[in-house]
Computed example of a mutant assay.
Amino acid sequence: MKRKELQSHENRPEKATRIKAGRIQRANYKWIYLFLLPTIVIFAMFYLMPIAQVFVTSFTKWDGFNAPKFNGLTNYINLFTNSSFLIALKNLLWWCVIALTLHVGFGTLVAFVLYQRPHGWKFTRTVFMIPNVISAAAWAMIYKFIFNNDFGILNSVIRVFNPNFNVQWFYKSPWAFWAVTFTWLFYAVIVTLVVLGDLMNIPKELNEAALIDGATGWQLIRYIQLPLCRASIGTSVIASLTSRIAMYEQIALTTSGGPGDDTMSLPIILVKGIMDYRYGYANAVGVVMFIIGLIVLGVVNKLFRMDEASY
């Protein structure tokens, strides 16, 4: 009994210290919550409430002026039976596949090349970044001239080898789809910068240890550098795929979704719904885009194990 009493007496200061630390921590939490309150209010006002309104009004008939009238699933039925919407989903699927492989792959490849610091790598990095500071709308207009059949650079070069070549890239199927794709395909500087930053954060000891163990350059990339860049590549995939979901300027300023519906996208349908004063229908498209974005986020997080530590 005396021994237990002695141990209990010795543990009292430690217990008191822990209780005091817990009280201080709870007091600090109050200040943390207080400083977070403005951010929470702004998020609720400018993000959460508009998103909730989009979901609610997607089940209504609303012209943007008069009060919305509940019409159940009518907007969604009209949307999913619209041939343009189905083509837009198919185009989005193809653009996501291209973005996942070629777009992110090209940006990652450039990052690994720059990481080796070849001669002139700083100049290359700067030049590679310049086109990406130009807005998507400006690039769309530039490409409209590049792909012009009469005086465009592309067709002028092709006619050197084939004088009879005549293609209106943005106005003829199936070339319009690929013309729109090329307006964003190789502008992957964000991917390059994100992956390059992750590469530069890899401890030199890991690379040196692998080289001492006899690893080749390819083995170093495959078994050490690529796995450790998993999070940055996953982040790049998310950014690239969500950009394809929201892609509007490149299409609106070049093909407007044509010829026919060959380059139709969900944002084009959404904007057309607004222009026709069908806000409920347009918000239904917005809900579909939102859900697709959440699915992309969840799948990429799972595939690239974004929640797990790299080291």
Rank of each mutant, 00 (worst) to 15 (best):
Tyr29His: 11
Pro163Trp: 13
Ser232Phe: 06
Asn166Trp: 13
Val157Lys: 05
Asn283Val: 07
Leu154Met: 13
Phe177Lys: 12
Lys69Thr: 14
Ala309Trp: 01
Thr254Lys: 01
Met1Arg: 02
Ser83Pro: 06
Gly298Arg: 00
Ala215Gln: 10
Val167Ile: 11
Leu109Glu: 00
Thr101Val: 14
Lys61Arg: 15
Ile146Gly: 01
Met306Trp: 06
Phe70Glu: 11
Val110Arg: 03
Ala209Arg: 10
Arg26Gly: 02
Tyr33Trp: 15
Ala136Gln: 09
Asn82Met: 08
Arg230Val: 05
Lys20Gln: 06
Asn155Pro: 08
Met306Leu: 14
Leu270Thr: 15
Phe177Cys: 10
Gln250Arg: 12
Leu109Tyr: 05
Tyr223His: 12
Ala67Asn: 15
Ser265Trp: 09
Gly273Met: 12
Ala21Met: 11
Pro118Met: 08
Leu185Cys: 13
Leu100Trp: 15
Thr17Ser: 12
Gly258Gln: 03
Ala137Thr: 15
Ser173His: 07
Val285His: 10
Tyr33Met: 09
Thr242Gln: 08
Glu208Gln: 13
Ile98Thr: 09
Ile42Cys: 06
Ile292Met: 00
Tyr171Trp: 01
Phe85Gln: 04
Gln7Ile: 13
Gly120Phe: 14
Asn166Ser: 12
Gly120Pro: 12
Ala111Cys: 01
Arg244Trp: 13
Phe145His: 03
Ser310Asp: 09
Leu48His: 05
Asn148Ile: 00
Gln168Asn: 05
Ile291Asp: 02
Ile202Val: 13
